[in-house]
Every structure is written in C-alpha cells, then in structure tokens.
Design a protein around this nucleic acid. Structure first.
Lengths: 199, 199
DNA sequence: CTCTCAATCTTGACAGTGTAAAGATTGTAG
DNA sequence: CTACAATCTTTACACTGTCAAGATTGAGAG
C-alpha cells in the first residue's frame, strides 16, 4: 500500500479511527490519546481537530464503527442459523461474546461512560439502536418458534440482551472466577445462561 | 467536626477516599484527578503518594469501599426479606439497582476497566468475592425454597448476578430507551428480568 | 489556465494531569 | 529529650487535550 506523503492526507478521518482501534487493542483504553492516534496516522498532533471536535468525538466514531461491525456479526450469525431455531439463540449470543473477546477494550469503550454525552452523537445512537432492533427481530422469531418465552418482545429482548451483556461484562471485568472457568468452558457457561430465557 | 490544621492530617487516607467519592459524584469519572482529590482534602497535590502508590491504587481503594457498602445493602435487604422467599430475590436485586443509581459513577468505576491490574489489589479482589459469596448463599436459599431453578449454585448465581448486572449496565449506559421507561416502571422491568430465573 | 478560497494540516502555546525526587515537619519509640 | 520514620510540601518533568495562528493545497469560478 503506497502512501503518498502529501500535505493533504486524503482519508485522514478513517485513518484516525483505524489508528484509534489499533492503539486501543495494543495499549488499552487508558493508553488511547489523541496525540498517539495522530502520530500513528502520520500526522501532526493537532490534525485530528479538522475532523473531530474533540477526543470524545473520535471515541464516538470508533464506537459507532464498532456497532456497525457488531451488527454484521450478529446478523450473519442469525442468518446462518435461521433454520435451526434451537441453535440460533446460543449462536447469536456466542457471536456477541466473541466480538467482545476479540477486542475487549473496544467493546468496553463502546459500552462505557467514556461517551458522556451520547445525545450529541446521533450516528452513535442510531447505530446502537439498530442493533437492538436486530435483537428484537431475532427474539420475535424465537418467540414464534417457541424457543423463547412469550411476553412483550421488547422486554424479552431486553432480558436476552441483558443476560448476555451481563455475562460478557462480568467476564471482561474478571469477575467470573478462574475456578469456574476451569471447570466449565465459556461456551457451556453461556449456554447455561441462555437456558434461563427458554420456556 | 473541627478540623485542626496540623502538618500531619491524621486520617488522610480515608479523607482522600471520601474526597474521591465526592468528586466522582459531582464531576464524574473523567473529572476525577488526583490533584483535585488532594485539593479537596486540603493537602498538597503530592500528599496522596504517601498513602497510595498511584491513581489506580486510590481508585482501587474507592472501589473496595464501594463493595463493602454494596455488601451491606444486599445483606440487609436479604435479611429483611428472608422470611418472604417470593419477594426476597426481587428486593435484593432492587437493592443492587438502587445502589448503582445512587452513585452511578462510583458504580461504573467499581466495575470498570479503570482497574486494569486487579490482581495487585488483594483487598479489592477479596471484597468483590465476598459479594459473590453472598449472592451464592442467597441463591442457594432460593433454590431450596423452590424460588429458583435447580442446577449448580455457582452457575445459577452467575446467571442471577449477570441478569441483574446486565440490566443495570444497559440502564446506566442509556441503552434502555426512554420509550420503554415511559411505558414500564424500572421496578416492573426488573421484576420481568427476575422472572427469567424462576422455575 | 490562472486565481481564489475553503478545507486541511502544521506549529506553537497553555493549563491540567500523573508522578518522581528532594526537602520540610512532626509524632513517637527508645 | 532525641533520633528516626512517617507524613506532607515543593519543585520539576513529560505527557495530555485543546486552542489560535499560520502554512499548504485541491477544486471550482472566471
């Protein structure tokens, strides 16, 4: 990939997001600084301000992009198993867990208070809502096929998301003790969680 | 309480923790700086280093103290309703939710990656484990009284904690849309979540 | 094709941050 | 009473987010 060293970068905005994701993966959330991101993108420390109002805005963009990818993961998993209702739910949840484990720090940022004024980032809100809509659709289908308990789809979807999200969070926070993880595989743990939702 | 202005503070360590909690409540996690904490405690900006190795250590102490209080809340709620098995579970979960809502930022810090190397803070680990032990005891009692589905207590406890924790997290992150909250009270939402655990 | 301008990027500056080192103060053990 | 160790202050430094002023350049108007 030949990078011309012109004054105008050309696609700096996306390059910054990409650099941010990389730094997040390497140095964690506490190691994510605007200046480092700029450096990694081969640009001066103030250049990001041409594309992002402040650090929060960059983080919002990273999160938004993360939600886009999460959507793809969940959706493709749901599609893949749409003819096997008994497996679909667990597989979708598994995709969620995998996404979180692939890049824990990005996941944390996506669901973290790092974004203090979400309202100011409509794209972020939209993308995050789009994910919940997807979950609702999957839940609805599973209710129809009798895999999930009945009740208001919105609330059951909230239960489903909550139980998986809670599981992932406890996992990422290291609250799920090592002794449990030795006895039971992550996958089995997740399946046990999902069972709660069945009816 | 008259504060003598001596060179030696006397109980600076606890004063710093207290100041930290106050700043956390007022300015949020991003507004929590060591220097501000020191200032609030009426002490020079470097004084904290006599009691905490670094900022992480102070945060660890704040979190540890938070877990102590969380334990008290949960425990007293469990005691209060120990003769009413049908209510106990929801009430305990409600206490958890209330604790989180009372001071969202402290709660986030307690369960946040802000603590990157937990292993180095054995008190924190111990206190957090003590909470899980408590949850396990409550779950065990509820399994015995038929309020909770059977199965390995450790895993059911994980489910219970996960479902409530996930709920709280989605709530704090603003992922539970306003429209849902308008239709259904928080309490009802929680009860719906808990129902999943019943058998 | 040239001129102009708005978008983009750089440079320089500033206040706030965490933290390390060296020194000042003081309670307390001997 | 005295020395010491714990506690607190002062000073210093690198790094951070952000702003303002200026440099560079691509693209459209003439």
């Amino acid at each position: 990939m030949p990078k011309k060293k012109t004054y105008h970068h050309g696609d700096l905005k996306n390059a910054l997001i990409k650099a941010g994701v990389a730094i997040l993966a390497k140095d964690g959330v506490s190691g994510l600084s605007l200046r480092k991101v700029a450096l990694k993108a081969g640009v001066s420390h103030s250049a990001p301000y041409s594309h992002f109002a402040d650090k929060q805005a960059l983080i919002a963009a990273i999160s938004t992009e993360g939600f886009r990818q999460l959507y793809e993961r969940i959706n493709s998993s749901a599609e893949k198993y749409k003819d096997r209702p008994t497996k679909q739910l667990v597989e979708v949840a598994w995709a969620y867990v995998q996404f979180a484990m692939d890049d824990p720090d990005r996941f944390k940022v996506m669901f973290s208070d790092v974004l203090e004024k979400e309202k100011e980032y409509p794209e972020f809100v939209a993308e995050s809502q789009r994910n919940f809509q997807l979950v609702k659709r999957i839940v609805e289908a599973n209710q129809a096929s009798g895999q999930l308990r009945s009740g208001p789809t919105e609330l059951v979807a909230l239960s489903a998301w909550g139980i998986v999200h809670g599981f992932v969070m406890l996992l990422l926070e290291g609250q799920i003790s090592h002794t449990i993880l030795e006895q039971t595989s992550l996958r089995e743990l997740l399946e046990f969680q999902i069972e709660s939702l069945r009816k």
